[in-house]
Design a protein around this nucleic acid. Structure first.
Lengths: 294, 294
DNA sequence: AGGAGCTATAGATCATGTCTATGACTAATA
DNA sequence: TATTAGTCATAGACATGATCTATAGCTCCT
C-alpha cells in the first residue's frame, strides 16, 4: 500500500535535507553517518528517483528531492507539533477535564477541589456538565465526560465507583416552625406539615421516598423544586419542611436560620461516589483530579 | 530528539484510528493483528497516554487520541500526496525538463525532439533557457537546467558530454553576390567582401576566427548579429557574406535564395553536444529526453 | 450455551536497521 | 604540490526489535 513501507526513512530524509549534510543529520538523529547514507540510498531506491546531489561539502536536493521535501517538511512539522502537544497533555499543561454531576455537589462538595486543581493546572480546561444521576451515567458511557460525581448507591457493572465522603440527609425548617425545635417527630407527624422535596429522579428524593415506603407511608411533597438553593430558601422563608443534605446547610444551621427536625427513625447516611468507566483508560487530568479528591 | 523514535508507529496509529479496528488496520497494512496491537501499545507507552478505548467491536480514540489523530492524519495525508507525486514524477506524468542552449539549436535541431517529447509526455513542463555556451555551462553547474545543448568541442571535467549529429558551417551569400557562385575563394578573397558573423563568444564564431588565425588572418566582421535568423536574413538581402551552419539554411539553399561559397580550405565540421553534469543524478525526464534524442 | 467477532499476551524467529572499519573523493589548506 | 580534513559510499558483522504463530480472554449476538 505504501511505496516506501517505512516512514522512518522520511524522518532521515527530512533531516538530511534540512541540514544539507548526512553527517550532520546523523548527529541530530543520534545515528552514524553510514546509517543515514544507507537510509537515504534506500529511500531513493524505493522511490525510484535520485533525491540528493552528493558533493564534497555535503548534500543538496535535486529538483525532485525539493518537491518531495516540500511535502515531507510539512508532514514532519505536524508530527513534531503532535509530539509537543502530547507532552503538554501528559504534563497537564494542556487538556480538558470533563466532570458530570449535580449542581449541588459541584457547589458544596467539589468546588474547593476544582479551585485547587485549577490553580495547580491552569492549562486544563474544566467542563462541568450538570445532570441527574442517570443522565450523568449516560454521559459517562457516551464518553462525553471523564468522570461523574453523584450520590450513592450506584450499581452498574460498567462503572467503577469509588466512595468519597459520607453525607447525611435530614429535614430542616425555618423560624416559622420553631415549635418543632427539640421535638422528635414520627413520620406521620412530619407529613402533617408541608414538605418540600427535590424534583423527581434525584437520588436523594428517591432515597427518602423509599425509606417512607418501607414504613408504609407515601411521602408526597407539597412543593417540588429543582435546586438545592431553592430547597434551602423555601425552608428559611417558612414555606415548609425541606429534605436536604445536612452538610450543605451547615451555614444556615449554624447561624440559626434553619434548624434540623429530628425523626424517630434514622435516615441512613449516603456517600458521594466518583464514577469512571470500568476497564477504560482514563485521562491524565482525570487521574490527577481523582488523586486530589482523595 | 523525537519522543517515539519511530514514525512507523504513527502510520499504524493512523490506520487503527481510521479503521476503528486493529484487525482491519492489520489487513490494510499487510500485518497481523498482534503486530498492530503491539505497535499501538508501544506508541501508548512511549507517549505515556492511552490513545484508544478497546471494546468488543474494535477500538475508538480517547480524547487525547483524537487530538493526536488530528495532527497525524494531516501528516499522513501529506506523505500519501508526496508518494503520489513521486510516482507521477517517475512515470513522467508530471515534472519539469529544463534545457539550456542557443536559440538556433532549439529551433533547427531540438524542435522535433521537443515536439515528440511533449506529445508523449504532456504532463512534463518544458523550460527552454537560451544563452551562450559559457552561460549554458554555468546554468548547468548552478543546477538551473537539467541539460545543455551546445556546439562542440566542450572541455570541462565536470561535464559529461555526448556528441550528437555533426553540423557543417559554411559561408553563404544571396543574389547580390551571384558572381561568386561556383568559384573557390581563398581567405583573402573572401575577406574583401563584407562579412557577417554571429556575436562574439559564440562557439561557431570562435571556431571560424581561430581557423583564420591559424592561417595568419584576422577575420573581422563588418556586421555582427545576435541571432541566426538575422544572419540568414542579412545574407539574403545582400548585406554581406554570412557564416552559418549549413543544415540551418537548407531551405534557403534549396530554394536558391542563398548559395554556399566554397573556400580553398576546409572548415572542419563540428558536432552538437548534449551536456549533463558528471557524477550527478539526472532527472527521469532528462534521461528519457536524452534517450529520445539518440 | 455456543459461536463469532474483537484485542492481549507470550515466546520464537528472522528481517533489517545500525554499527565499525575502510575506501574514494573533493576542497582547502601548508 | 602534497597534505590534511572534511565529505559520502561500501562491505560485512551484529543485535535490536518488528513480526509472526499460537493461544487466551473478553463481549456481544444468536
Amino acid at each position: 500500500m505504501s511505496m516506501t513501507n517505512n516512514y522512518e526513512l522520511y524522518k532521515v530524509f527530512y533531516w538530511a535535507a534540512k541540514m544539507g549534510s548526512l553527517t550532520q543529520a546523523a548527529k541530530t538523529l543520534y545515528l552514524t553517518q553510514p546509517s543515514v547514507s544507507h537510509a537515504i540510498k534506500q529511500l531513493e531506491e524505493r522511490v525510484g528517483i535520485s533525491l540528493f546531489y552528493r558533493n564534497a561539502k555535503g548534500v543538496s536536493l535535486t529538483q525532485e528531492g525539493k518537491i518531495l521535501f516540500s511535502y515531507i517538511e510539512q508532514s514532519q512539522i505536524l508530527i513534531t507539533l503532535a509530539e509537543e502537544k502530547m507532552v503538554a497533555l501528559k504534563n497537564l499543561d494542556s487538556g480538558d477535564l470533563r466532570i458530570g454531576g449535580s449542581d449541588s455537589l459541584f457547589k458544596h462538595y467539589l468546588l474547593p477541589f476544582l479551585e485547587d486543581f485549577h490553580v495547580q493546572y491552569p492549562g486544563i480546561k474544566l467542563h462541568l456538565k450538570h445532570g441527574t444521576t442517570p443522565e450523568v451515567i449516560s454521559y459517562l458511557k457516551e464518553g462525553r465526560i471523564d468522570l461523574g460525581v453523584v450520590r450513592m448507591p450506584i450499581v452498574d457493572s460498567l462503572l467503577e465507583v469509588t466512595e468519597s465522603i459520607q453525607l447525611q440527609d435530614c429535614f430542616v425548617a425555618g423560624e416559622r416552625y420553631a415549635e418543632l425545635k427539640g421535638q422528635v417527630l414520627s413520620m406521620e407527624q412530619l407529613m402533617e406539615y408541608p414538605v418540600i422535596l427535590f424534583s423527581r429522579n434525584s437520588r436523594v428524593r428517591m432515597a427518602i421516598t423509599e425509606l417512607f415506603e418501607k414504613y408504609g407511608h407515601e411521602l408526597k411533597p407539597d412543593i417540588e423544586v429543582g435546586s438545592v438553593d431553592l430547597l434551602i430558601e423555601f425552608a428559611r422563608r417558612g414555606l415548609g419542611i425541606s429534605f436536604v443534605t445536612r452538610e450543605f446547610v451547615s451555614k444556615e444551621l449554624k447561624e440559626g436560620s434553619l434548624f434540623e427536625i429530628e425523626l424517630d427513625i434514622e435516615v441512613p447516611p449516603s456517600n458521594v461516589g466518583m464514577m469512571i468507566m470500568r476497564n477504560m483508560p482514563i485521562s491524565t487530568a482525570a487521574t490527577k483530579f481523582l488523586e486530589m479528591v482523595r
